[in-house]
C-alpha cells in the first residue's frame, strides 16, 4: 500500500507530512527509551514484511505488519514505521520521498488505532482468550484501517475514494487474515516468553 510519487496533489502531500510529523513527535515523547531496541526490531520487521507476498488471485498484496507493530508499540509505532518506510523508499524504491509523509501517516495512524482496539478488547474481555481475540482484531484491523486511510488519500485523485477503497479492501482480505493470525501468535508467544514487554507498552 505504498502510494507512488506524482499521484497526490501538494495539498494532500503537505497534510500527510504534517500529520506524520505530529504522530512521530507524540510517538517519540511517549517512547520509553528502555524499549528502544524493541522499537528497532519491530521497525526491522515492518521493513522486511513488505517483501513477503500473500497470493491474491489477480493482484499482489504484501504483508504490512502495521497492526503487529501497533499492538506491541502503541504510539511508538509512528517513529518505527517512519524509519522503515524511509529505508524502503531509499533501498527498494517503494513509495518515495515526497509521499513519505502520507504513507507514514496511513500506516502509523492505523497502527495506533489498532493498538487502541487491542487495549479496548482486553479491557472488556480479560483472560487468555480475550488477549488472543484482541491481538487478532488488532492485526486485522491495522490492515483494514491502512487500506481505508490509503483510499482516503487517493480520494482526491481521479480514482475516487469508493473505487480505491473497494479495490484495496478486497485485495487485502487475505492479508488481514494472515496478519491477524501472525499478530495473535506473536502476542501469545511474547506474553509467555517476555511478559515485561507488555507492561512497558502502557503510555
Amino acid at each position: 500500500m505504498h502510494i507512488a510519487e506524482g499521484i497526490l496533489s501538494p495539498v494532500v502531500l503537505g497534510a500527510g507530512a504534517a500529520l506524520a510529523a505530529a504522530g512521530t513527535a507524540i510517538g517519540l515523547r511517549k517512547l520509553d527509551y528502555d524499549r528502544l531496541m524493541t522499537v528497532g526490531i519491530l521497525s526491522a520487521a515492518f521493513f522486511v514484511g513488505s517483501l513477503i507476498h500473500v497470493p491474491v488471485g489477480f493482484s499482489s498484496a504484501h504483508l504490512i505488519l502495521n497492526g503487529l507493530v501497533g499492538v506491541l508499540l502503541g504510539w511508538a509505532a509512528f517513529p518505527a514505521i517512519l524509519t522503515a518506510l524511509l529505508l524502503q523508499a531509499v533501498l527498494f524504491q517503494f513509495g518515495g520521498f515526497t509521499v513519505l509523509g502520507v504513507n507514514a501517516f496511513t500506516m502509523g495512524f492505523s497502527s495506533v488505532l489498532a493498538w487502541y482496539c487491542y487495549r479496548g478488547i482486553i479491557g472488556i474481555w480479560p483472560g487468555p482468550t480475550g488477549i488472543r481475540a484482541a491481538a487478532f482484531c488488532g492485526g486485522a484491523l491495522g490492515v483494514a484501517l491502512a487500506a481505508a486511510l490509503t483510499a482516503l488519500a487517493l480520494a482526491f485523485t481521479s480514482e475516487g475514494f469508493q473505487t480505491a477503497a473497494q479495490l484495496l479492501l478486497w485485495a487485502h482480505l487475505p492479508v488481514m487474515l494472515a496478519e491477524g493470525l501472525i499478530t495473535m501468535f506473536t502476542v501469545v508467544f511474547i506474553q509467555r516468553v517476555r511478559p515485561e514487554m507488555f507492561q512497558a507498552a502502557r503510555a
Binding site: M37, G40, I41, S43, F47, A84, L87, Q88
Partner: peptide
C-alpha cells in the same frame, strides 16, 4: 538491500541508546 536496511534500523536504535 534487505540486510543493509535491517542494519540501518538496528544501527539507528543503537545510536539512540
Amino acid at each position: 538491500d534487505i540486510i543493509g536496511g535491517i542494519g540501518w534500523i538496528l544501527g539507528l536504535a543503537g545510536m539512540g541508546l
